[in-house]
Simulated assay, not measured.
Amino acid sequence: MTTKEAVTMAQQYTATVQAEALSPTLSTALSLRPVHGASYRVTVEEIEESDEEKLAKLRAAIQKGRDEIAAGRVIDGETAFAELAAKHFPHRMK
């Protein structure tokens, strides 16, 4: 891909590319067939997850926690906090 110009914005990148460098996915997304030798400006930006995707990830994380509990891979809260304190604040331990 030949980049003639690039503008970096918040999670966005714009480049000018030759028709030959366009991926098949981008080429089919154009309303007209790309002309050989022509230049095209392509902008790529990160999109946020949909609510459905976020919910699916949350449900998967909850299920993972339930599986851990069912398998007995748990410790009580006091023990967990004591281990964290010993690891991250050893100078405070008496």
Rank of each mutant, 00 (worst) to 15 (best):
G72M: 04
D76C: 10
A86Q: 15
F81S: 10
A80M: 14
E78Q: 11
E68K: 12
A85S: 13
L58F: 06
G72S: 02
K54M: 11
V74I: 14
G77N: 13
E53L: 03
F81T: 14
A85N: 09
A86K: 15
A61V: 04
I75S: 07
K64R: 15
A86G: 10
A61P: 00
E78F: 03
A82T: 08
A61F: 11
E68P: 00
I62E: 04
E68W: 03
E53V: 10
I62P: 00
K64Y: 06
R66I: 13
K54L: 08
Q63C: 02
E78M: 11
L58E: 03
A71S: 12
D51G: 07
R66H: 06
Q63A: 15
I62M: 11
E52V: 09
D76I: 01
D67Y: 01
V74Q: 13
L84G: 03
E53N: 05
D51M: 12
Q63M: 12
I69F: 06
D67L: 11
A85L: 15
V74T: 15
E52P: 00
D76Q: 10
L55V: 01
I62F: 03
L55N: 08
F81E: 09
R59I: 01
A56Y: 02
A71I: 02
R66S: 07
K87S: 02
I75K: 13
K57H: 11
A60L: 08
E52S: 13
Q63E: 09
D76N: 14
A71R: 07
A86E: 11
L84E: 06
L84D: 01
A80R: 15
L58R: 04
D51S: 11
K64C: 02
A71P: 00
F81W: 08
A85T: 10
D51L: 12
E68H: 11
A82C: 05
F81Y: 08
E68L: 12
F81H: 06
E83G: 01
G65E: 06
G72W: 01
K87N: 03
I62Q: 14
K57I: 01
A56I: 01
E83H: 09
T79V: 13
L55Y: 03
E83W: 02
I62D: 07
A71N: 10
A70S: 14
A80D: 02
L84S: 05
E52L: 06
I69T: 04
E78G: 07
K57L: 02
A80C: 08
T79I: 05
A71H: 05
V74W: 11
I62Y: 05
A80E: 07
I75G: 02
A60Y: 03
I69K: 08
A60G: 04
E83M: 13
T79D: 12
G65Q: 15
A70Q: 11
L84Q: 10
D51H: 08
D67C: 03
E53C: 02
K87A: 05
A80W: 07
K64Q: 08
K57F: 00
A86I: 06
D67E: 15
